[in-house]
Amino acid sequence: MGKTEKAIEVCLFAGKLMIKYGAETYRVEDTMQRMGEAAGMKNVHTFVTTTGIFFSCQTEQEEDLMQMIRVDQRFQDLNKVTEVNQVSREFVWGDVSLVDAKKRLIEISEAPMNYPIWFIYLASGVAGAAFSYLMGGSVVDMGPAFIGGLITILSLVFLQRYIQGKFFSEFLAAFLGGVTALLLVHIGIGTNIDQVIIGSMIPLVPGIPITNSVRDLMSGDLVAGVSRGAEAAITSLSIAAGVALALSLFLT
């Protein structure tokens, strides 16, 4: 494999990692372009969507090369995006060679999350409790909102192992969280059902798709922006449907 092919491989790998862990489209395109030019390619073109990356360039012998890579899964892990960004920055400045950059990218992709999963569960519960206070201002409802948020994120992580459809597991998690909140208020823990349910649903908010969709649409990446916007909209609708099902089962 020639030098340019190896460089293309590293560029595509960096791009795949960034899009997989929730970077904006323009940042991925910009990173790949800069890395390609730093590796000595000419006429570099990149096209990034939410589910796949295309990359084409010209070698020093004026030979045209084109590759694409498919992105199947998307997670939310901004730490990895920051690290890949750092590697690409150092590569473009010339502080890191191509081989070392590839090694570090493989390390990043194989590393675990920088927080243990129980800490993320805890953070979801705490976020639910704090938001239920911010929305309504009663300290009594923070306890049930904590439990509701915890149940929601636990069931989401559990269900995502067994269900292929992302939106259906979000729907079921919202339903289970809503049922928990309703039961807790019914047996007398907590007073205001609205606040408890809002707090319980907070860990499911699709923050990365919403923010990135706005960003992508504004920087002219229309395909990626629309697809992320659709992802955010369907996630919000499935959360709403899950809560609606819980409410209509228990309130009537």
Binding site: N79, T82, N114, I120, A123, V126, L134, G207
Partner: peptide
């Protein structure tokens, strides 16, 4: 304090570097 805690725990949910 609660607003700080809420936003910081969201940062943890999105795996922002510590």
């Amino acid at each position: 304090i609660l607003c700080f805690i809420a936003t910081a725990s969201f940062a943890v949910i999105f795996n922002v570097p510590a």
